[in-house]
Design a protein around this nucleic acid. Structure first.
Length: 562
RNA sequence: CGGGGAGUGGCGCAGUCUGGUAGCGCACCCGGCUGGGGGCCGGGCGGUCGCAGGUUCAAAUCCUGUCUCCCCGACCA
């Protein structure tokens, strides 16, 4: 019998002083987690029950698409990572063993699982396969934050698919899309999937699964039928009032005006009528002058994708030599390749004149300078997709799926012999889910001023029984009887049998957030009933439940909960 | 890595400027009352003031160094 009097559930009246995010405050206050160091957390018994409920949902759904659960080590020889080219990632924890050999703590398991498949797979007959595990990931994050939301150590479900070709990979990917939809639906979270950047994993396609909430670190652009991470979102820009180009660019005196706002004010035009110049040096391409509308911002990820290469901002002396004085640079007459954002339409723009304290007015892209087109700006609220204005909201990334292609199989030698006798690399996908983030997102999405309100699929216990009498009382005996009845039909029950006042018990129950609370006290006991309250909305059940045959009534109530 | 803030009993804080026997609330222990929303009365336990060094008759307080944690930004498969 899970008695609160025996349980390690250290609830706190006040949140930790340094906590900011709601889930951080509430998960600590409710006694679910405790901090050990920056980004390092212990899951206390009640918190770990939540974690394990999530794990079990994920396990059932990945099993259902043919995933095979296994377990790979966290501590790995550095050699694997040197071969895959990921050894130099800053987030990778590196260490030496007693013999001086380089080791790493895995931040994901592509290297390990791919190495195994290189050993096992001989023929196309050995494919496809889906393998997965729940295992600790170690990442030396520059800034852990918000409690359990961004940590340096966390458990992740990562699955990996192995196929003959892109068609096979697409099929495995689609299986995960279906499994993920079932998983996130079952958790009770509000969620959606978005297009995302393939990032440093390398790859040919990716989606992220997002749970919207205030503490989220990602920004998502949303419109009817559209959802994308702002990192990669594309939308039609709001039009800006533009003068026509002049017959030829006119030089104007703009002393001291080096910012968009200063120039726009001085010349009496909208910021959007300027072209913002962002000089970068791209790997293998050299200096490139990126131009976006003055009211837009360059998006580094989209720019990297448009350039097809990593880049860094150009240094002042590189700009001075090749283009003009910093603060007054522009594309006209500059000896540099120009990348023009797609949101820049026909019109007469203001650009830097490449001489101090001067700009050019009436400049027409194409006529006055040559350019390459690229979508390199960040979308902003009010942009449109299919005619609908987008909104941008914060969200937690709770899962992601990647089409890796042969990015790991080639360097790690995971090959198979195809029907035609040719040796080919295996096509891979990788698919992650963070149970801790799902828990935190659920707290964020459903908490109220009293505390947590778990979706029933994630709650540490299905039902909390608050017994109001003290030890040896009639109330407590009745509560214990109720406990046994509910257990017998398979409900997880927590019994608050502590010798404390009713206020403390109610407050703790609301903090902990089990979806259904039953109260056994003198009042209702006289009528042979227990009071019942749904946690979501603190909604009292009319008349409560009868103690006689309680199990049926409670089970029915339970099934009706969110 | 840049900027800001904080380390004083289990938690939340005051005390530091202006050096002089370390305090408050909650929690905890004992006794009693109370018993449907964090209740009341009385009595208690518990802190080398993050760490190291220095100044001083005397350091939580001043100086130097260092460690840790938080927030914003950068960063973030």
């Amino acid at each position: 019998m899970t008695r609160l009097s025996q349980l390690l559930l250290p609830t706190e009246r006040e949140p930790p002083a340094d906590a900011e995010a709601l889930s951080h405050k509430l998960m600590v206050r409710a006694g679910l987690v405790r901090q050990v160091g920056a980004g390092l957390w212990t899951w206390l018994p009640a918190g770990y029950r939540v974690h394990q409920k999530i794990v079990q949902i994920v396990r059932e759904e990945i099993d259902a698409i043919g995933g095979q659960e296994m377990l790979m080590p966290v501590l790995q020889p550095a050699e694997l990572w040197k071969r895959s080219g990921r050894y130099d990632i800053d987030e990778l924890f590196k260490l030496k063993d007693r013999k001086g050999a380089d080791m790493v703590l895995a931040l994901s398991h592509e290297e390990c699982v791919t190495t195994h498949m290189a050993q096992f797979v001989r023929s196309y007959r050995d494919l496809p396969r889906i393998l997965y595990h729940f295992q600790v990931k170690e990442r030396d994050e520059p800034r852990p934050r918000a409690g359990v939301l961004r940590t340096r150590e966390f458990i992740m479900k990562d699955s990996y698919s192995f196929d003959r070709d892109l068609e096979g990979l697409d099929a495995s990917y689609d299986l995960h899309v279906e499994a993920y939809a079932r998983i996130f639906d079952r958790t009770g979270l509000e969620w959606y999937s978005v297009e995302s950047d393939v990032g440093m994993m390398g790859g040919i396609g990716a989606h992220e699964y997002m749970a919207p909430c205030a503490a989220g670190e990602n920004e998502v652009a949303l419109a009817p039928g559209y959802a994308a991470n702002v990192e990669v979102a594309a939308a039609e820009a709001q039009p800006v009032a533009l003068p026509d180009p002049l017959a030829s660019p006119e030089t104007v005196h703009t002393p001291g005006a080096t910012t968009i706002d200063e120039v726009a004010r001085m010349l009496g035009v909208q910021p959007g009528a300027l072209l913002k110049a962002y000089p970068v040096v791209a790997d293998g391409r050299g200096l490139v002058l990126v131009l976006v509308r003055g009211d837009h911002r360059v998006n580094d990820i989209k720019l990297t994708n448009a350039l097809g290469a990593a880049f860094r901002p150009a240094h002042d002396d590189e700009v001075r030599d090749r283009i003009g004085p910093p603060g007054y640079i522009g594309p006209v007459g500059a000896n540099v390749h120009v990348l023009l954002d797609t949101a820049v339409t026909y019109g007469g723009y203001v650009v830097g004149a490449n001489e101090p304290d001067h700009h050019l007015r009436g400049v027409e892209p194409g006529r006055d300078f040559a350019f390459e087109r690229g979508d390199v700006r960040s979308v902003v609220v009010g942009d449109r997709v299919d005619g609908h204005e987008i909104t941008i909201e914060p969200a937690i990334e709770v899962g992601n799926i990647f089409k890796l292609g042969t990015r790991y199989s080639e360097p790690l030698g995971a090959m198979y012999l195809d029907v035609d006798g040719a040796q080919r690399p295996i096509w891979m996908g990788s698919y992650g889910i963070g149970p801790a983030r799902i828990a935190a997102a659920a707290v964020e999405q459903f908490a109220d001023e009293k505390g947590i309100s778990w979706p029933r699929a994630l709650a540490p216990w299905d039902v909390e029984i608050v017994a109001l009498g003290k030890a040896g009382s009639e109330e407590l005996a009745a509560a214990e009887g109720l406990y046994r009845e509910l257990r017998a039909i398979g409900l997880d029950v927590l019994l608050d049998d502590r010798d404390v006042g009713p206020g403390v018990k109610f407050a703790d129950a609301e903090l902990l957030g089990c979806p259904l609370r039953l109260t056994v006290g003198r009042r209702s006991l006289q009528d042979g009933r227990a009071e019942a309250q749904r946690r979501r909305g603190l909604d009292d059940v009319e008349g409560g439940v009868p103690l006689e045959g309680a199990a049926e009534a409670v089970a029915e109530l339970w099934r009706s909960l969110p």
